[in-house]
């Protein structure tokens, strides 16, 4: 079903910004906006904004998160506020009874299956929900990402307060967002997961906030190259 096209909430804005699209797992994703080298350089030197809303986002509610994590990934569930790498997924503990699992677009279905199978074997209520389509996922990549976020959110983005592989939930540009930090190599990078309907507004607001530090759009190809 190749002509099956899923669009991210940022599709219209990316098209306006001159994005060239590519097909990944049925999604039309913005491959690049300008020259990939220029985009990569901007991300490394200052800060860039990219739309990865096709990434998998699964939430799990319940009190057996330790048991579930052990069963599915043979890993220990991270403590509240922390993130951890797992096989084909990252685990982020939002609350003692809430776990967020993020994956690449192509690994969502497989991860859901493993989770549901493991949950069925455990007693007590576990609710596994695929939020992939419900949340936009914008990434701020680059050394100035913390400064730009510091113009939109009251959290402390200093290295000690918000280390790599940490998760916080707060208000960003007056909208509720889950904020993940997952650096790409040495380049600091923060992901904003929030209501899909607010994705375009958030993109426009973040772009304007970072105008004076040279914030520019970043395509998928440049991200993979970082």
């Amino acid at each position: 079903m190749t002509e099956l096209y899923k669009q991210t909430p940022l599709h219209a804005i990316a098209a306006q910004a001159g994005a060239q699209f590519t097909d990944v797992d049925g999604w039309q994703l913005s491959q690049r906006f300008s020259a990939v080298e220029a985009e990569t350089a901007a991300a490394r030197a200052a800060v860039a904004l990219t739309d990865l809303s096709a990434n998998g986002k699964i939430t799990i509610e319940g009190h057996q998160l330790e048991a579930l994590t052990a069963a599915v990934w043979q890993a220990t569930a991270p403590a509240v506020g922390a993130g951890a790498a797992a096989d084909k997924a990252y685990l982020w503990r939002l609350r003692p009874d809430h776990l967020l699992v993020t994956t690449a677009p192509e690994d969502v279905v497989a991860t859901l299956t493993r989770l549901n199978r493991a949950a069925a074997a455990l007693d007590g209520l576990l609710t596994i929900t695929d939020l992939t389509h419900g949340r936009s996922e914008l990434w701020l990549v680059g050394p100035a990402s913390a400064e730009v976020l510091g113009r939109l959110c009251g959290l402390n983005f200093g290295p000690a307060a918000f280390p790599n592989l940490a998760v916080r939930q707060s208000s960003v540009a007056k909208t509720a967002q889950i904020i993940l930090r997952r650096d790409i190599g040495q380049t600091p990078a923060f992901a904003l997961l929030g209501a899909a309907s607010l994705g375009a507004y958030l993109w426009e607001t973040v772009m304007q906030a970072g105008q004076d530090v040279g914030l520019a759009p970043l395509g998928r190809q440049a991200v993979l190259g970082l």
């Binding site: 939002l94 609350r95 809430h98 916080r168 939930q169 707060s170 208000s171 509720a176």
Partner: peptide, 8 residues
């Protein structure tokens, strides 16, 4: 209620 955060 932690409206913008963990919804506790």
């Amino acid at each position: 209620y932690h409206r913008a955060g963990c919804r506790l």
